[in-house]
Simulated scan of single mutants.
Amino acid sequence: MISSTLPLSFCRSFPNLDYLDMSQNHIQGRLLGIPSTLSVLDLSHNKFIGQLPELSNSSLLNVLDISYNSFEGVLHHFICSYDGKELEVLILADNHLSGAIPNQCWEKYQNLAFLSFDNNNLSGGIPRTLGYLSSLQSLNMCNNKLSGRLPIFLKKLKYLEILQLAGNKFVGRIPTWLGKMFHM
C-alpha cells in the first residue's frame, strides 16, 4: 500500500503511460496535474486534498475516477477549462465538492456515458445543459443538496438507463414523462 505523495516526476518518468490505476492506497497531498498521455486514470480511494486538478485540452483521457478522496471546491473551472471530447467516464463521487453544477460547458462532453457526482455538497438545480450529454447512460447525483424540480430536459437523454437522485431536496411531483422514459 502506497502512503506517500504522488510527485509530478512520477508520471514524467513514464512518457508513454496510457493506463494508471493507483486506487485503494493512502496516497496523499494535492494532485497538481494529469499527464495528457493517459486514457485511463483511477486514483479513487486515496487521500488527495485540495482543488480538482487541471486537465489539458490535449488530454486523451477516456476514464477519470478520482472518487473517495477529499477534493474540495467548485466544479466550474474543472469542467469548463477542459474540452472533454474524449471523456466517457467521469467519477467525482465522495469528495467535498460544493457549489452549483456548472450550467455551461456540457456541450463539449458528447462522448460522456457515465457521470457521478454523488455524496458531495453540490447545491442548486440540475443544469439544463446536461441535456447536451447525448451519450449519457448513467447519471448519479445522490446525496447532495440539489433542489428545485426535476427538469424536463432529462427527456433528451435517450440512452439514459440509470438515474440516481436520492438524498437531495427536490420538490414537486415525479413527472409522468420520467416513468415513460424508462419504460421498456
Rank of each mutant, 00 (worst) to 15 (best):
F48N: 02
F71Q: 01
H183N: 12
S4G: 15
L160M: 08
L160R: 08
S81K: 15
V171C: 08
F153H: 08
P127M: 04
F153R: 05
S58F: 11
R128M: 01
D83L: 07
N16Y: 12
K155W: 02
G29P: 11
R30N: 11
S9Y: 03
R12T: 06
N57W: 07
D83F: 12
I174Q: 10
F170M: 06
S98V: 03
P53E: 01
G29L: 01
Q104W: 03
I34F: 10
D18I: 13
H96F: 12
K145W: 08
R149I: 13
P15L: 02
I34T: 00
S135W: 05
L165R: 07
Y68Q: 08
F10Q: 02
P7F: 06
S135R: 08
L64N: 04
M141I: 15
H77E: 12
L17D: 05
N46I: 00
L92D: 03
S67V: 04
L52K: 07
I49V: 11
L112W: 04
L165H: 04
Q104R: 12
N111H: 14
K85P: 00
L133N: 12
Q24K: 05
S23E: 04
L60Y: 13
V74Y: 13
E72L: 08
F182L: 14
M1Y: 03
N103Y: 01
I66G: 01
S3R: 08
M181E: 00
P151Q: 10
D83E: 15
A166I: 05
Q104H: 07
K155Y: 03
S36H: 14
S67Y: 02
R128P: 01
F117L: 12
K108Q: 12
R173H: 14
N95D: 10
I162S: 09
L43I: 00
L31M: 04
W177Y: 03
F71A: 02
N140I: 11
L97E: 07
I66W: 02
F78T: 00
D118T: 01
K47L: 10
T5I: 11
R173P: 07
K155P: 01
S98H: 13
F182H: 06
